[in-house]
Design a protein around this nucleic acid. Structure first.
Length: 347
DNA sequence: AAACCGGGGTA
DNA sequence: TACCCAGGTTT
């Protein structure tokens, strides 16, 4: 059977009875869609009942004070939804004569309505063949077709939208959209999906490849932390230096490095020599110069290390116990090794 | 492209 | 704790 027919049949037998599924009133449908953005049905339901009772028409909502609307929204989260809802209610009541736009193109112009919500309203209220793509649709399609494109990449967004649009049942777009989302919410769940008695199990690519739990794929947007490292490359007049072993849990555990002064940003020589750490190391006279005129940015998966190597020349230091011809014996981060290579070459 | 916006449920 | 939820707007 066709993908869409299977889903619609499943939907007609398994759907939950929800108040916004019993109406074609675009105002009610809009209200429910805004409330259900990033929100579970169980959480939004009581708010929907409260709002439709207090504001039975878009004019009632438009007449209310914004603070009243926000107060009623309290606890539902994402409060810009409530502000946009009220703004759009006033727009529809005052500028559009209370008539809700009936096409995707016009619906999406409304504040607080994006691609998903415009498609949902166009199909549910006006029976237009605009396919919805929400979190459920991403999950169902990526699994059934075995699509590994990241759903939060720009190419993934286009790919899934195009696919969803190609699959919609144009004779009953509302039922199809409802069906695929309900199927994703109840059957093809994020965790522990019910594959054992799934009506699509025979042709589900992810099930056959045993990758159901891995889909959909989402790009990890790991936040990169910028750190600013100042390494003090010490050279005593008896040709010794200092290497310190990194302890603790952070990066480079157990490896050796030159004494490090971390700063909030790249600093110049004056700023460096006035740091407390620097003065603790060098009580007496030294000469100091920046080795790399341009900062070296060492990129780790989750950190960008903006690095400056400072050459510090001084007379004999009791802490400086490592002879420069032994430095290469120590395990060091590649960042330090690369520095040593260019530094030694210049000598 | 990425940050931001929230409260709540689930494993 | 980490992930996800009938996403959209702003930068």
């Amino acid at each position: 059977m066709k993908f869409s027919n299977t889903l619609i049949n499943w939907y007609l037998q398994n759907k939950r009875e929800l108040p916004w599924r019993k109406t074609k009133n675009p105002y009610f449908i809009w209200l429910s869609e805004i409330m259900l953005q990033q929100t579970r049905v169980a959480q939004g339901l009581s708010y929907y009942l409260k709002f439709t009772e207090a504001f039975p028409t878009v004019f009632d909502l438009a007449k209310a004070d914004e603070s009243t609307v926000l107060k009623m929204w309290q606890g539902l989260g994402y409060y810009s939804r409530a502000r946009n809802l009220h703004f759009t209610a006033k727009h529809i009541a005052n500028d559009l004569n209370g008539e809700f736009p009936s096409t995707y193109k016009n619906i999406i112009k409304l504040k607080g309505i994006g691609d998903y919500t415009a498609s949902a309203i166009a199909s549910f209220a006006f029976n237009k063949p605009n396919a919805v793509v929400d979190g459920n649709v991403y999950r169902v399609l990526s699994r059934y077709f075995g699509i590994e494109t990241a759903i939060n990449s720009s190419t993934g967004i286009k790919e899934f939208k195009t696919l969803a649009q190609s699959l919609i049942d144009k004779k009953q777009p509302a039922n199809y959209n409802q069906a695929i989302m309900e199927f994703g919410a109840i059957q093809c769940k994020p965790q522990k999906p019910l594959c054992i008695f799934c009506p699509l199990s025979d042709s589900c690519v992810a099930l056959q490849k045993n990758v159901v739990e891995k889909l959909p794929i989402k790009e990890k947007k790991l936040k990169v932390r910028n750190r600013y490292f100042n390494f003090l490359v010490i050279k005593t007049d008896d040709n010794k230096t200092i290497l310190l072993k990194r302890k603790g849990k952070g990066i480079w555990q157990g490896l050796y490095q030159f004494p490090l002064i971390e700063s909030k940003k790249n600093i110049n020589k004056n700023e460096l020599i006035t740091t407390e750490e620097f003065n603790n190391l060098f009580p007496h006279e030294i000469t100091i110069s920046l080795f790399n005129k341009k900062e070296i940015v060492h990129k780790l998966s989750h950190q960008h290390l903006h690095t400056q190597f400072w050459i510090v020349e001084t007379k004999k230091l009791p802490q400086a116990e490592i002879n420069w011809n032994k430095v290469e014996k120590y395990p060091v981060p590649i960042l330090i090794a690369n520095f040593l290579e260019t530094y030694q070459a210049k000598k």
